[in-house]
Design a protein around this nucleic acid. Structure first.
Lengths: 223, 223
DNA sequence: GATTCAAAAATTGCATGCACAATATTGTCC
DNA sequence: GGACAATATTGTGCATGCAATTTTTGAATC
């Protein structure tokens, strides 16, 4: 209940996106309009509109006259997505170095410090949540809503493939060290260093994924 | 007639987008579903779906229960869009420096050379078309379809505001000189120089726009 | 003349139904 | 037994209709 201000279409888009991101709808799954309408207790109309919205984010694939499926991502496409994500994150860091306000800089430093404790306690859960906030600070810090939204969209699209991100041993400490490099560059206003440090950081996330996680899609079409 | 393979929704989205880009639908115009359905000879259903698709690209603004309007862009939002565009173009140039194939590099050089003639003849029409191709080469040259599509989408979204881009005296020669800087950096594989040169180039485009063109939206909400 | 409020009109959100395209199934021939 | 064609079935694309919300209109009041 609560806020009944959003339309059924929007609510549906959110729920289906969540189902995809948390893995309960696996890549390749056919998204039958009747089935979804029945499952969520609406008619096909809002379902169709929600599917079209999700298609633009890349979470699902819409084939004219042939229905929708949860996007199957080949390892090559995943590589492409990670590279694009890295470039956008790096750009956000670059702009953050140039335009973060003193308050934003202080907040960034405070979050970074608090994450040191989580590393010390080896608290993966808390660190993962804080990590998400840490990156979000740069989206906002770019002071460019257009760029911020693009980056956030890409992040959501990659979410299904990052579940095991911090499981690798020592990954927490490494991540925190890289965060430190990014943060220092941003705080000193060194734009190109911030860009480079963030790019490096996100590349390593990609590597960690490839070494460790078996993404849902890879089961179907690896190589 | 011809290719009746695409759905009415897709065709509609294209036609409405064109109408916005070429200026026949001005920012702020209300997009009444009944009106559009009548104008294009369909029912409201495909119109609604087309509008939702356009909304995701930012060309129109969709206010729940309150209809759609052609996006009104404040000068501040326009600034944001141009910055984001510049960063993405610069990123494409950066990646192009790293990953263009010899064939792509040769094609880039050939196009650049051919544009010198257009500058000499002061052929604004031809130069504008070639300029579009020039930038598109970097989208493809990034070898990252995700990034390329994002950049192209932003370019389309800014298209309504760039009509008078090359009208300013001397702008053609200046543009060509900047293209030269970008091209040389890419051809020599200097990624950060390519990034910087493209950023510089696109910033100047933005300046040219601000000095010269009065965008449709600025009539309504400048300051 | 401006402001407030209520009723009317307009417009969106959603449901439902039908036609056609795509897919699955069955049957026939080699 | 396998390939192919005809048929049945499923599912999407689109049209239409109704209910609810928003916007407009008009009068009454300050």
């Amino acid at each position: 209940m609560a806020d009944e201000r959003q339309t059924r279409t929007e609510k549906l888009a959110g729920e289906i996106a969540d189902a995809i991101i948390n893995g309960s709808l696996e890549p390749g799954t056919r998204l039958d309009e009747h089935m979804l309408a029945a499952r969520y207790g609406t008619s096909r109309t809002p379902v169709r509109e929600a599917l079209r919205k999700l298609a633009t984010t890349g979470l699902i694939e819409l084939r004219p006259r042939r229905g929708a499926i949860v996007a199957e991502v080949t390892s090559q496409q995943l590589e492409t997505l990670f590279v694009a994500m890295g470039e956008l994150e790096a750009t956000c860091a670059r702009l953050s170095a140039l335009s973060m306000t003193p308050i934003e800089r202080r907040r960034l430093g405070a979050l970074y410090d608090s994450m040191a404790d989580m590393v010390a306690r080896d608290d993966v859960e808390a660190y993962a949540a804080a990590n998400s906030n840490f990156h979000t600070l740069f989206y906002a810090g770019s002071h460019n809503p257009v760029l911020a939204e693009m980056t956030a969209t890409l992040r959501r699209r990659l979410a299904p493939f990052r579940h095991a991100q911090f499981r690798a041993p020592g990954r927490l400490a490494l991540s925190h060290a890289e965060h430190g490099a990014v943060m220092r560059a941003v705080l000193t206003g060194d734009a190109s260093a911030a860009h480079a440090a963030m790019l490096h950081h996100v590349s390593l996330v990609e590597d960690a994924f490839e070494q460790l996680a078996t993404p849902p899609a890879a089961r179907w079409q690896a190589n």
